[in-house]
Design a protein around this nucleic acid. Structure first.
Lengths: 220, 220
DNA sequence: TACTTCTGACAATGCTTCATGTCAACATTC
DNA sequence: GAATGTTGACATGAAGCATTGTCAGAAGTA
């Protein structure tokens, strides 16, 4: 007799396989998370609200996510990867002109935030105040970003020598500059055209490269 | 008959006037707020914990503050002003050498964060995720900071022309750079000496000024 | 048709928080 | 020492929340 431990047979419903249905529910919660977390922040949103936004019930929330934080983490990770993919794709498309690559990458970054301002809040604000784990995750993401930036400029300008500067700190600073500009741009309702934001941030990059060149040539 | 509406006479207690006692309680809550908000964040701290940290009871909490957010706002405001005062004082002391002023100001900024890492979290992290009102307050503070930065450089280098750049965006970027460097420095456990952090941030400032000069001289 | 699974609505539990209120013990003044 | 303001410990109540459980009916299967 296996009547005690036999699992319920999972079957199709409304023409959809169980996995498909589940993935669909998962997706709807991801959407709801983006919508609510992105507008009202992590702490201002309850599980019930997420469910009603997703038009599903609590029971399915806990089917897909351990808790509220798990959903936020998933949404955060997806937003990071989407933005990263887009920016990388555009950069590749402008190879090998470093100036065009940097400018296009920056523009795509800012465009992405304008198209979906909700991800700005998720990416830059709330992630820092949820838990030590999420803070660490965010730290790794921005560290990775400055690491990439570092690699990028050093590949393009191998003759550059820091001349007493710490490239890691400078890269961290440049990333912070872009983030802060982005936040003020987003929360200021996109007052400036995206080209202005892009050009001014690019100017910061170029200024550092120029400085390095000058110092390097002075030294050499 | 005044027995119905006569207020209780407030009098001295343990040799202290009522106002003094009240101010002392207020102060203890400010200290508790700095200690708890600065280490565990706004959302992770309850009124009860603040009271036990201050060694006072809820009744006195609500005597001094409308709610948890009001205490946070007061702590935030005080930290901002303290840091601002310190930085301004140091800058004035290095008049009129702009290079020395900028470097000393930056160093004081970073020193302040190292002396009390708790205020980093309050100033840069939690303030953004409490309420629209606190977010706005923070926006005004950093806007004021970039405004000051702007005024400072334009007073020192009146010949500088932006040459297609928006000084406001650039200033916002530089402020963001300092904040991000500061955050990574603090949360990284002050791995680098303060001089390194100071010099690298200063390099960003100088790079922009250099760029402006170059563009201006090219243009003129 | 008979049976099983799937779904959504909602109840229930147990916990925590904010905010206010009560009360007895204590300190001070008269 | 009597009267009265002050203090701290604790009680209370209302609200919100995360999480689990129940159940009837809809949808699929045989």
């Amino acid at each position: 007799m296996e009547s005690l431990d036999e699992k319920p047979k999972r079957r199709t419903f409304k023409g959809l396989a169980p996995e498909v249905r589940q993935r669909e529910r998962h997706e709807r919660f991801m959407e709801a998370g983006l919508a609510l977390y992105g507008t009202r922040g992590y702490h201002g949103v309850t599980v019930k609200e997420l469910c009603s936004e997703a038009k599903l019930t609590e029971r399915y929330f806990y089917e897909s996510f351990k808790d509220r934080e798990a959903l936020f983490g998933a949404v955060y990770q997806r937003q990071v990867e989407q933005l990263r993919e887009r920016v990388l794709a555009v950069i590749r498309r402008h190879l090998p002109d470093p100036r065009a690559m940097a400018r296009a990458g920056l523009e795509t970054f800012f465009q992405g935030l304008r198209e979906d301002p909700r991800c700005a809040r998720i990416l830059f604000v709330d992630v820092l105040s949820i838990s030590p784990a999420m803070t660490e995750q965010s730290r790794q993401v921005t560290s990775g970003l400055s690491g990439f930036l570092l690699q990028f400029t050093q590949a393009l300008y191998p003759q550059l020598r820091a001349q007493g500067l710490d490239p890691e700190i400078v890269a961290t600073g440049l990333v912070g500059a872009c983030i802060n500009v982005a936040m003020h741009w987003v929360y200021g309702g996109f007052a400036q055209p995206v080209e202005a934001v892009r050009d001014n941030c690019y100017a910061l990059f170029e200024a550092m490269i120029l400085t390095w060149s000058v110092k390097a040539s002075k030294a050499g």
